[in-house]
Computed example of a mutant assay.
Amino acid sequence: MNDASSKPWTMQQIAAAAGVSVTTVSHTLSGKRPVSSETALRIRGLIDQFGYVPDAGARRLKSGRSGMIGLAVPDISHWYFGRIARGVEELANERDYGLIICSTSNSDPRREKRYFNLLRTRSIEGLVYTASREISPTDELMRMASSSSPIVLADEEVVGLPGVPSVTSLNFAGAQALGRHLRALGHTRAVIVAGFAGLRSTVERVAGIRESFPDAIVVHGDFELQSGYDLVDELLAQGVGFTALFGCNDYMAVGAMRRLHEAGLRVPHDVSVVGFDDVDIAGVITPGLTTVRQDMLEIGRRSAQLLIEGLDAGSMRGIPSVTLPVELVVRGSTGPVAGE
């Protein structure tokens, strides 16, 4: 019997050692057919031990497929999008697909066109796309979707794209939970530091907060730390009074907290602050940020899964959209209204 230092085993040898058919080994690797967890674990253990590597090149040459998918994100250096990218990469690797990651520089149309050309020329078989701005009917994404190109939207749903599935979180429900949490603490005056006005996630999060604070003032930024800081600076300069602040994401919430601190306002004694996402910084700042946790890694994995399912089926038609649950995480940045 071979050991780990000898020549890698063939699929036939893996099947024989596992006591299964070659087809079962193939299904374990591709995920196209269900295989019992016990059998899959035994097969993957043998693959890890004896170094079997699927002959992807030969299979793709025979099928005429590139075996590559693409991921377009606004900024790959951003922690949030990096988590989504990791999820896409993990699932693609499990399904034996290569991955090209494209940074669109916050959905710059010129960059987007370059990356959509990879899909048009079949350099990649499909694309996971993450939007960071409102999409108009003239955008390249709209044109590609109308041509039935294999596309899955990750993190943001875009209205008006029939046949394009999406993987998103329960944005409204998450913001709704934050609003109710603040209301239960006695807050009645709130401001909303929102993201880009045209994004579906922004609309849903604002609506969720406004269920509890219908008169909340809304200002719009770009999801970055400096944006939260600058918007709160403007609110304070205008003399706007509030005891609760909702950041449409954690970065803007943290930027807001910094400006409040500089203004001599204590969080949460004077102002309670909440965010959305639960990025790494939310749990390490002082006070910790009350927020809604969404699973960015799972958004990436499920997006890649939907895309590959559509590619294997030969069409994205019938591939359903997915909405993932969220979780309220209460930390030290929220408290009762002073004097209550």
Rank of each mutant, 00 (worst) to 15 (best):
M1D: 03
S6Y: 07
T10D: 08
Q12S: 15
V22W: 05
P34M: 05
V35G: 07
R44K: 15
R44Y: 11
G45P: 12
L46K: 04
L46W: 02
A58V: 07
R59Y: 06
R60A: 08
R60Y: 14
R60N: 15
L61K: 07
K62Q: 13
K62F: 09
K62L: 13
S63W: 11
G64E: 09
R65W: 01
D75G: 10
I76P: 11
H78G: 07
F81I: 09
E89M: 03
N93L: 11
I100A: 13
C102K: 05
C102T: 07
S105Y: 10
S105F: 09
E112Q: 14
N117E: 13
L118H: 13
S123V: 15
R133V: 10
A145V: 08
S149W: 04
I151P: 11
V152T: 04
A154Y: 14
G174V: 04
A175Y: 02
A175C: 03
A175W: 03
H181R: 02
G186E: 00
R189V: 09
V191Y: 08
R200M: 14
V203Q: 15
A207D: 04
I209S: 03
D215C: 06
A216F: 04
V218H: 02
L225A: 07
S227V: 04
G228K: 06
D230A: 10
A237G: 05
G239Q: 12
T243S: 15
F246D: 07
G247H: 02
M252T: 03
V254Q: 00
R258N: 08
R259P: 05
G264F: 02
R266P: 00
P268L: 00
D270R: 00
V274N: 04
F276N: 01
D277N: 14
D278K: 13
I285E: 00
R293Y: 11
R302M: 08
A304Q: 03
Q305T: 09
L307H: 08
E309A: 11
G310F: 02
I319E: 10
P320T: 13
T323P: 01
L324G: 09
V326C: 13
E327N: 06
